[in-house]
């Protein structure tokens, strides 16, 4: 564990807490893409298959349980909870996210570390996470004004993977034979997808104005 990875995990955890706060405090999930939440639930379920088989550390297991349970809970909330489900922007959240799942499956079958059940599922989860934010970014552009908590949620979600890239650079220089091109490549694409969001987020923060994404 290094400081970059801890910062990344804490930023990721914080983004989940901000999202939960937004849904709980405003009793609304307007501006939140259910499709991105479903993709993230799938990412965690396919990546943490080893939750019950390999014990790495208490921290590792606790964080996996937190990420799986929070993402599933949010999907359930947005789909079935009588109050919040009505506030979901169903007609704006139209990204065909099953295409992202299909492409990730093909990529995982073609590019993986070892052709084993767990490794292919792990690669799938890495590729899927890289593009999981797309429905959310499209929804933000369509829904015009973005409420603060939603903007902060997306910001921290993007920042966590940037910390992970620093973590991979750090591990590359401190650990021998540490080359994980799948994580690096996907992590780079994932962070790059946030580039324009980060730009508009910074501009809105500098001008102390409402976050506005160009349509």
């Amino acid at each position: 564990m290094n400081i970059f990875r801890l910062a990344g995990d804490m930023t990721h955890l914080f983004s989940v807490l901000v999202l939960l706060l937004k849904i709980y405090a405003t009793k609304s999930c307007s501006g939140i893409s259910l499709k991105t939440q479903e993709l993230y639930a799938l990412v965690f379920l396919t990546r943490y298959l080893d939750l019950f088989t390999d014990f790495i550390s208490v921290y590792n297991s606790v964080m996996k349980v937190v990420f799986i349970s929070s993402s599933v809970a949010i999907v359930w909330c947005m789909r079935y909870h009588p109050l919040t489900r009505r506030t979901y922007d169903k007609d704006l959240d139209t990204f065909r996210h099953y295409i992202l799942v299909g492409v990730s499956i093909i990529l995982a079958l073609l590019f993986h570390d070892r052709f084993t059940f767990r490794e292919v599922f792990w690669a799938f989860s890495i590729y899927l996470e890289a593009v999981a934010i797309l429905p959310q970014l499209v929804l933000l552009q369509r829904s015009g004004n973005v409420d603060n908590l939603t903007g902060q949620y997306v910001f921290f979600l993007g920042a966590y993977r940037a910390f992970y890239i620093l973590n991979w650079i750090y591990r590359y220089f401190t650990e021998n034979h540490y080359s994980r091109w799948i994580s690096w490549l996907a992590g780079f694409v994932q962070t790059a997808l946030y580039a324009d969001f980060f730009y508009y987020y910074f501009v809105s923060w500098k001008n102390n104005a409402k976050l506005q994404l160009p349509a």
Partner: peptide, 10 residues
Amino acid sequence: AKESSVKDEL
């Protein structure tokens, strides 16, 4: 040596 795989990451 213990494979320092990225799999010990979240």
